[in-house]
Simulated scan of single mutants.
Amino acid sequence: MEEAGTKKRKMGERRAADNKKATTTAKWPVVKPKLNLQIRRLKDTDLFTVQNLFSAVESRAFIKAAESIGFEHQGSLGPTRGEAYRDNDRTSVNDPALADAIWQSGLSKLFSDIKIRGKVAVGLNPNIRFYRYKVGQRFGRHIDESVDLGVGKRTHYTLLIYLSGGSKTNGKSDSSKQKDSVSEPLVGGETVFYGSRNGVVAEVAPAEGMALLHIHGDKCMLHEA
């Protein structure tokens, strides 16, 4: 999210170098205001979850909109070259209106009483990224950097919103029907955070429409997905 201090908006983890952003205009779903959202803090850390920030309909509509833009594969040189292992697909947009719509849907009220170094959150970073993981893909251990947005604003938190996860199936499949990213059930995909001595601090399983926030910059915990 962005801040006057603020927080950083992402639908995936932060990467130091930006790739070319998508120029295709997508038809984003309308994000309706959510009442009675609650923050759940994980194990006395700077990790928070918010259930049902997006509805199931909104989550699936965002998947279709992102796929209409198109994803590009993201790789890396790997840990031996000083980069986190990376194997996933990504697309990104710079959309202040979309960032503001998500912020005003309920996050602004949730974080009105939270201060970071004496500053309060005022919005989201308009650089929004969508990540897609296929079977066997992952993003190795890394940290997210803080971003200077100018005019006195800097990001302090990463916001991830899971667009799939927690789906229930009857264990049967029809191989004659082609599956897309919306209908295919998710297996795995946990985001794991590590503390000192590489001990696991938290392991967050994806749930459709759930938001996960974690502090980044000089206080960011090592994590992987």
Rank of each mutant, 00 (worst) to 15 (best):
G12T: 07
N36G: 06
G188V: 02
K179V: 07
K179C: 04
Y131C: 11
P29A: 09
E3Y: 09
T155G: 09
K21Y: 00
F62A: 03
A205D: 02
L53Y: 06
L212E: 00
S176Q: 09
G171Q: 05
E208L: 08
T6D: 06
A84S: 13
I63E: 01
S105E: 01
P126K: 07
R81Y: 12
T91L: 12
V120C: 04
G118Y: 02
I215D: 00
D113V: 12
S164R: 08
V200L: 02
V30E: 09
I39K: 14
E72R: 10
R9N: 14
V93S: 03
A65N: 07
T25V: 15
G195M: 04
D174Y: 08
K7P: 04
L53D: 01
I39H: 02
L186T: 15
V50I: 15
Q74Y: 02
L124G: 13
D174T: 13
K7V: 15
T91V: 14
D144T: 05
G199Y: 06
N127G: 12
K168P: 01
V187T: 15
S105M: 06
G195D: 00
G189D: 02
R90P: 01
S164Y: 00
T6A: 11
N19Y: 07
S167N: 08
G136E: 01
S164A: 11
D100N: 14
F54M: 12
K34Y: 01
A22V: 07
K177E: 03
S68Q: 07
N52R: 15
A65E: 01
A211T: 03
T158Y: 00
D89F: 14
S92A: 15
R197F: 07
K34H: 05
G150D: 03
H214C: 08
N19I: 11
D148N: 15
L213A: 04
E184G: 04
S181F: 07
L107R: 04
S181H: 11
H73G: 08
D95H: 09
T6K: 10
G209E: 00
L107P: 08
G165L: 05
G150T: 05
D89T: 06
K20E: 10
D44W: 03
S68A: 14
F62L: 12
L149G: 06
R60H: 13
K119N: 10
T49Y: 02
V57D: 07
L163W: 00
R138T: 13
T45R: 10
L47S: 04
I63G: 08
V200D: 03
I69T: 07
G188A: 04
N170E: 03
Y131K: 03
P185L: 03
T80N: 13
A56L: 09
P29G: 08
A65H: 02
D95L: 03
V135P: 11
Y131N: 14
T24P: 05
D144W: 02
D87T: 08
D46T: 14
S183L: 00
R197S: 14
R132K: 13
R41P: 00
S164G: 10
R129V: 15
H73K: 13
K27L: 10
G118M: 04
T49N: 03
R117T: 05
G189W: 00
E224I: 04
E190P: 01
V200K: 10
D89L: 12
H214T: 05
I63F: 04
D89M: 12
